[in-house]
Amino acid sequence: GEDLPLPPGWSVDWTMRGRKYYIDHNTNTTHWSHPLESGPSSG
Score class of each variant (00 low, 15 high):
1 G>I: 10
1 G>C: 15
1 G>P: 09
1 G>D: 11
1 G>H: 10
1 G>K: 11
1 G>R: 09
1 G>S: 11
1 G>N: 12
2 E>Y: 10
2 E>R: 09
2 E>W: 08
2 E>K: 11
2 E>F: 09
2 E>N: 10
3 D>R: 08
3 D>E: 13
3 D>N: 10
3 D>H: 09
3 D>L: 08
4 L>Y: 09
4 L>A: 13
4 L>D: 09
4 L>G: 14
4 L>W: 13
4 L>C: 14
4 L>R: 08
5 P>H: 09
5 P>F: 07
5 P>D: 15
5 P>C: 02
5 P>V: 08
5 P>M: 08
5 P>T: 09
5 P>A: 13
5 P>S: 12
5 P>I: 07
5 P>Y: 09
6 L>R: 14
6 L>D: 15
6 L>P: 15
6 L>T: 01
6 L>K: 11
6 L>H: 02
7 P>Q: 00
7 P>M: 00
7 P>N: 00
7 P>R: 00
7 P>G: 01
8 P>F: 06
8 P>A: 07
8 P>E: 08
8 P>D: 08
9 G>K: 03
9 G>C: 14
9 G>D: 02
9 G>A: 00
9 G>E: 01
10 W>L: 01
10 W>I: 00
10 W>R: 00
10 W>T: 00
11 S>R: 05
11 S>V: 08
11 S>Q: 06
11 S>W: 02
11 S>D: 09
12 V>W: 10
12 V>Y: 12
12 V>T: 07
12 V>I: 10
12 V>F: 14
12 V>E: 09
12 V>K: 04
13 D>T: 07
13 D>I: 07
13 D>Q: 14
13 D>H: 15
14 W>L: 10
14 W>K: 12
14 W>D: 07
14 W>R: 11
14 W>Q: 12
15 T>M: 03
15 T>G: 05
15 T>V: 04
15 T>H: 06
16 M>C: 15
16 M>G: 15
16 M>T: 15
16 M>A: 15
16 M>S: 15
16 M>V: 15
16 M>I: 14
17 R>E: 15
17 R>A: 15
17 R>G: 15
17 R>T: 15
17 R>M: 14
17 R>F: 14
18 G>D: 04
18 G>A: 03
18 G>K: 02
19 R>T: 14
19 R>F: 13
19 R>I: 15
19 R>A: 10
19 R>P: 02
19 R>E: 15
19 R>K: 14
19 R>W: 10
19 R>G: 07
19 R>D: 13
20 K>G: 02
20 K>P: 08
20 K>T: 05
20 K>Q: 06
21 Y>K: 05
21 Y>R: 05
21 Y>I: 10
21 Y>G: 03
21 Y>N: 00
21 Y>P: 01
21 Y>E: 01
22 Y>L: 01
22 Y>S: 00
22 Y>E: 01
22 Y>W: 08
22 Y>K: 01
22 Y>M: 00
22 Y>V: 00
22 Y>G: 00
22 Y>D: 01
23 I>L: 06
23 I>P: 00
23 I>T: 07
23 I>R: 08
23 I>D: 02
23 I>C: 04
24 D>W: 02
24 D>Y: 01
24 D>F: 02
24 D>H: 04
24 D>N: 10
24 D>T: 01
24 D>M: 01
25 H>P: 02
25 H>L: 06
25 H>I: 05
25 H>E: 06
26 N>S: 08
26 N>T: 09
26 N>G: 05
26 N>I: 08
26 N>D: 04
27 T>W: 02
27 T>M: 04
27 T>G: 02
27 T>P: 01
27 T>F: 04
27 T>A: 04
27 T>Q: 04
28 N>S: 07
28 N>E: 07
28 N>M: 07
28 N>D: 07
28 N>L: 05
28 N>H: 09
29 T>G: 02
29 T>W: 01
29 T>Y: 02
29 T>D: 03
29 T>I: 05
30 T>Y: 14
30 T>K: 13
30 T>W: 13
30 T>P: 04
30 T>M: 12
30 T>Q: 07
31 H>M: 04
31 H>Y: 08
31 H>N: 03
31 H>A: 04
31 H>D: 01
31 H>R: 08
31 H>G: 01
31 H>E: 01
32 W>D: 04
32 W>H: 03
32 W>T: 05
32 W>E: 04
33 S>I: 13
33 S>E: 12
33 S>L: 13
33 S>M: 11
33 S>W: 11
33 S>R: 14
33 S>T: 14
33 S>D: 10
33 S>F: 14
33 S>Y: 12
34 H>F: 06
34 H>L: 09
34 H>M: 05
34 H>Y: 06
35 P>L: 01
35 P>E: 04
35 P>G: 01
35 P>T: 03
35 P>A: 02
35 P>I: 02
35 P>S: 03
36 L>W: 09
36 L>D: 06
36 L>V: 06
36 L>G: 08
36 L>H: 06
36 L>I: 06
36 L>Y: 09
37 E>V: 13
37 E>D: 10
37 E>G: 11
37 E>K: 12
37 E>I: 12
37 E>R: 10
37 E>S: 12
38 S>K: 13
38 S>R: 12
38 S>G: 10
38 S>Q: 12
38 S>L: 12
38 S>A: 12
39 G>V: 13
39 G>W: 11
39 G>Q: 12
39 G>N: 12
39 G>H: 10
39 G>F: 13
40 P>R: 11
40 P>K: 12
40 P>L: 12
41 S>N: 10
41 S>Y: 05
41 S>T: 11
41 S>C: 14
41 S>M: 09
41 S>A: 13
41 S>H: 10
41 S>F: 06
41 S>W: 07
42 S>G: 13
42 S>H: 12
42 S>Q: 12
42 S>P: 11
42 S>M: 11
43 G>P: 11
43 G>L: 12
43 G>N: 12
43 G>R: 11
43 G>I: 10
43 G>F: 10
43 G>E: 11
43 G>C: 13
43 G>D: 10
